[in-house]
C-alpha cells in the first residue's frame, strides 16, 4: 500500500467518524445500553458464584468424640480422619476451647454459663475438605463412615441446609446459563443490527466509492475503525454505568464485587473486535452484491 493511500484511508476514517457523529452517538448509546445489560448480568453472576465459592470454602465438618476417649485413641482418630479421601485439614478443638468459643458467641449473655459447674461440651475435630469435595453426597458418606468408628459420638455438617443450598446452586447455574445465553445473543443481535444499519445508511457513499475506483481496503478500513470505535466507546459507557449501579448497590450489599480490571480490559477489547469484525462482515456482504 502506498503511504499516501494509507494516509487518505486514515483521514477518511477520522472524517467519517466526525461527519456521522450524531448517528454514531445514537449507535453507541444503543450498543452501550445493551452491553450494560450483559455486564450487569455478569456482575450478578460473579457475585453469586463468589458467594457460593466462599460458602463452600468455609464449610467445615465437626466430629464430636465420646466422653473419656483417651488421648492416644484421639490421636488415632485424627490420623484416620486425615487419611479419609477429600480431607484436607483436621484441627483438634478441646472441650475447653469449645467452651471459650461458645462464651464468645454468646457475648453479653455469657453469665448464663457461669451457672454451669461443669463443661457439657465434648472434644471435637474440625474437618476442612479439599476443593471439590464439599458436596452433600461426599460429606454424608464421610460422616456415615466416621460415625461407625469407636469413640465417635456424632458427625455434623448442617446436612439439611447444605442439601437445600446445593439444589439452589444447581438451579441457579441452569437459569444463569440459559439467561446468559439469551442476554448474550440479544446483545450480539442488537450490535450486529446497529452495525448493519450503519453500513446500509452508507449505501450511497459505498456505491460512489466503488464507482470512482476505491479498493475494498479503502472502503473497509474506515468502517472497521468506526466499528471498533463504537465498540470501545459503547463498552466504556456500559462499564461506567455499571460503576454507577455498583456504587448505589454498595449501599445495600457491602461486599458487592465489581468486575476485575483485566476482565474489563478484555471486555472493551472484545467489543472493539466485535465492532470491527461486525462492520467488516456487513460490508463484505454488501460489497459482494
Amino acid at each position: 500500500m502506498k503511504l499516501n493511500e494509507m494516509k487518505y484511508i486514515l483521514d477518511e476514517s477520522v472524517s467519517m467518524l466526525w461527519r456521522r457523529k450524531a448517528a454514531n452517538l445514537i449507535s453507541v448509546i444503543i450498543m452501550g445500553l445493551s452491553l450494560l445489560i450483559l455486564i450487569v448480568f455478569l456482575m450478578v453472576t460473579l457475585n453469586i458464584t463468589g458467594f457460593i465459592d466462599k460458602t463452600s470454602k468455609e464449610t467445615r465438618m465437626y466430629v464430636y468424640l465420646n466422653d473419656g476417649v483417651s488421648e492416644s485413641d484421639s490421636r488415632d482418630i485424627q490420623l484416620k480422619l486425615l487419611s479419609e479421601t477429600g480431607v484436607e485439614e483436621v484441627v483438634f478443638i478441646s472441650r475447653e476451647e469449645a467452651m471459650e468459643d461458645f462464651r464468645e458467641t454468646l457475648g453479653e449473655n455469657n453469665e448464663l454459663l457461669d451457672a454451669l459447674d461443669f463443661n457439657p461440651l465434648p472434644d471435637s475435630y474440625r474437618l476442612k475438605l479439599k476443593e471439590g469435595f464439599v458436596t452433600s453426597a461426599i460429606m454424608k458418606a464421610i460422616s456415615e463412615r466416621v460415625e461407625s468408628w469407636e469413640g465417635i459420638e456424632e458427625v455434623r455438617f448442617g446436612k439439611r441446609w447444605f442439601e437445600k443450598g446445593e439444589k439452589l446452586v444447581r438451579n441457579f447455574f441452569i437459569i444463569d446459563i440459559v439467561l446468559g445465553l439469551i442476554v448474550f445473543l440479544s446483545v450480539v443481535f442488537v450490535i450486529s443490527n446497529t452495525v448493519r444499519l450503519t453500513i446500509s445508511n452508507s449505501r450511497e457513499t459505498i456505491d460512489i466509492l466503488k464507482l470512482v475506483g476505491a479498493t475494498n481496503k479503502y472502503i473497509e478500513i474506515p468502517f472497521m475503525i468506526e466499528g471498533a470505535m463504537q465498540g470501545v466507546v459503547s463498552s466504556l459507557l456500559a462499564v461506567g454505568l455499571l460503576g454507577v449501579i455498583h456504587w448505589f448497590a454498595r449501599g445495600y450489599i457491602q461486599d458487592l464485587v465489581f468486575i476485575r480490571l483485566d476482565a474489563i480490559a478484555l471486555f472493551v477489547f472484545l467489543c472493539a473486535l466485535l465492532g470491527a469484525v461486525g462492520s467488516f462482515a456487513a460490508l463484505r456482504r454488501f460489497l459482494k452484491s
Binding site: 502506498k2 499516501n4 493511500e5 487518505y8 450511497e204 460512489i208 466509492l209 470512482v212 475506483g213
Partner: peptide
C-alpha cells in the same frame, strides 16, 4: 449526479484522485 452530500466540491472531486493514492 451521485455526489457525496456531506462533502464539498473539492472533496467530491478529490475523492477520485485520493483513491488512486495520488499526492496531495
Amino acid at each position: 449526479f451521485r455526489l457525496l452530500e456531506d462533502r464539498n466540491v473539492f472533496e467530491n472531486v478529490a475523492l477520485a484522485m485520493k483513491v488512486t493514492g495520488m499526492r496531495m
